[in-house]
Amino acid sequence: MTQTISPLLKIVVGIILLIVVAPLIVPLLMSISDTTYIVFPPKGFTLKWYAAVLANPEAQDSFLFSLKLAGIVTAVSLILGIPCAVGLTRFKVPGQDMVLGIILSPLIVPLIVTGVALLQLFSIMGSRATMLQLVIGHTVVCLPYVIRSVSASFVLINRNLEDAASVLGAAPHVVATKVVWPQVRPGILAGGIFCFIVSFDDYPISMWLADGNHFPIPLYLYTVIERSFDPSIAAIASLMIFFALLLVLVIEKVFGISLARLAS
C-alpha cells in the first residue's frame, strides 16, 4: 500500500532542499564571471577559469594526490576496521569499551590537536616518510567512521538467517558470502564512502603532516585563496561539487545501493 504525501510536506521538503542546494549554486555562478576578481551576481560569461584550473599542473597534482591518498586510506581503514568491528560486535573482548573509546576518540578530540600530536610523535620517531605519515594520520581519523558504520551493520544483522543456513548445510564461506555479506554490504560501503570523503576533504591533519611534494587539494585550495581571490577559486569549488555528485552517481550505478539504504 502506498502512502500519499501531503502537499504541505512536499512544500516543506522542497524548501529544505532549496536551502541545502542554494549555497552550492553560488560558486557555480561566480565561476563563470568574466572579471579578474569574484563578483556576485556574475558579470559576463566565460569558462576560462575552468580551463585555467584544469590546465594548472599544481591543481592536477593536488587533486590526483588527494584521490590517491583517500583511496589508500579507505582501503587501509576497511582492512583494519572490518575485523575490528566484527570483533567488537561478535565476541566478548576484555576491555571492549575501552578499545572502542580509544578508536572513537579522534571524533571527540579536535582534529588540529590530533594533527600536532601526530607530528610530534613522528618527529620523536625520526620519521621523514611524509606519505606514510599522511596515511597513518588520515586512517586514525577515518577509522571511527568505518567501525561505527560496520558495527551497526553487524549489530542489526539477523543471526537466525546464519543459523538456518548452517543447519541446512551451508559451508562457513557460503554463509559469509551469501547470508552475511548482503546484510552488511551497505554498512561497509557507507563506511568506505564516509572514509573516502573525510580523507579527501581533510585539512587539519594534512596541514601538520603534508609537505610541498605531498600536497592534498584542501591545502592547495587554501593557498590559492590566499594568493588571489579570483573566480578560479569558485571554479575549483564547482569542480569539487561536480566530483562529489559524480561519486554518488557512480556508487549508485556500480554498487546498486539506493541512497535511502545508505541513509538508513
Partner: peptide
Amino acid sequence: RATKDSPK
C-alpha cells in the same frame, strides 16, 4: 615546537 626534539 612539535619537532623541537628532533627538528624536521
